[in-house]
Design a protein around this nucleic acid. Structure first.
Lengths: 164, 164
DNA sequence: ATCGATATGTAATATTGTAACGATCGTCAA
DNA sequence: TTGACGATCGTTACAATATTACATATCGAT
């Protein structure tokens, strides 16, 4: 996938996160939940953690093995597991996946995360959404029971605004 | 596409909207904007207006002609035009399209509509989002320029909650 | 050790969306 | 009127995304 503006380098990647630590945390989390953090799941999570922006499923598929791609169901199953565990989020407007912001696993708040998505460099920033009063009140009026909320703000990040 | 629960009839469709009137409004809107409301675009809009829930692109493609389907580019082009005109919204989490709530064309507020999407009967309700302070303030902190916001709340509508 | 539940491997296919390119239509100016 | 131009459309082909189905393997508890 390409981005809207491609006339610059866009070397705005943040410092690499500590992938190893996040992987270990995830193992612990799964153990505590009585779930199995298998090889495929760990590898999928690793590839998403390593990326500096949301990753497409087929990027994971292609990079899964050093030699040759994984089969789609392997990766889609892992993605769906990781999403259920609250370790990753699916970005609906990009058909892509991104690791959950650090340490919001225990809070249950991962149901209402929001994202700032840069149309230029492709990076995403997760933002906490403490409460969305407008949505809650309209849902209540309609008798609608909200299970989860997806909020995606598309636009330009600071670095890309300065580029343009 | 099927929904999560299928053990009931789910005859909760609202009264049919006045499709003809909405089509006429759309023609006027386009005329005023100096855009052409062509046959394909009108037909696509009509099919979306007639539906009681968000419609998939390939449903439009299949129903486009009385005999035989349209070609995908015809419909995707029309969908993209209608979206630019503010006549329809794309629902990212469903890969589907729904007509804009009546009479928010002139306001420019269609950039920040939100949706309540029932996982059971598939219906959608558009909700106005006057302001999303939490998003705006986090975006401002990050120096992020928001262009448009997608907000989709998945859950159960009142009728389906009572069914279950 | 073996049974049941969970997870994986594999092939095939379904669904969703675009690229490319020539033909046609509308508008406007000469 | 005519021609030129941009916008729109028709068509073919294909790319990208995701799932079904079913056989096999693995884990963990009895």
């Amino acid at each position: 996938m390409s981005h809207a503006c491609d006339h610059h380098d866009h070397n705005h990647a943040p410092a690499p996160v500590n992938t190893a630590a996040r992987l270990a945390e995830a193992q612990t989390l799964c153990a505590e939940a009585g779930e199995r953090m298998t090889t495929s799941r760990l590898r999928t999570y690793e590839l998403i953690l390593e990326a500096s922006a949301p990753v497409k499923a087929y990027d994971v598929i292609d990079r899964f093995h050093p030699d040759g791609a994984a089969k789609p169901p392997t990766v889609y199953r892992a993605l769906s597991f990781l999403e259920h565990m609250g370790l990753i989020h699916r970005i609906e407007s990009l058909n892509a996946f991104v690791a959950c912001g650090a340490s919001d696993h225990s809070t249950g708040s991962h149901h209402t995360a929001g994202f700032l998505l840069c149309d230029c460099c492709g990076q995403s920033v997760e933002i906490a959404l403490p409460a969305l009063g407008a949505v809650d009140s309209r849902a209540a009026e309609a008798g609608f029971k909200v299970k989860r909320i997806t909020l995606e703000a598309r636009g330009l990040c600071q670095a890309c605004r300065q580029d343009d």
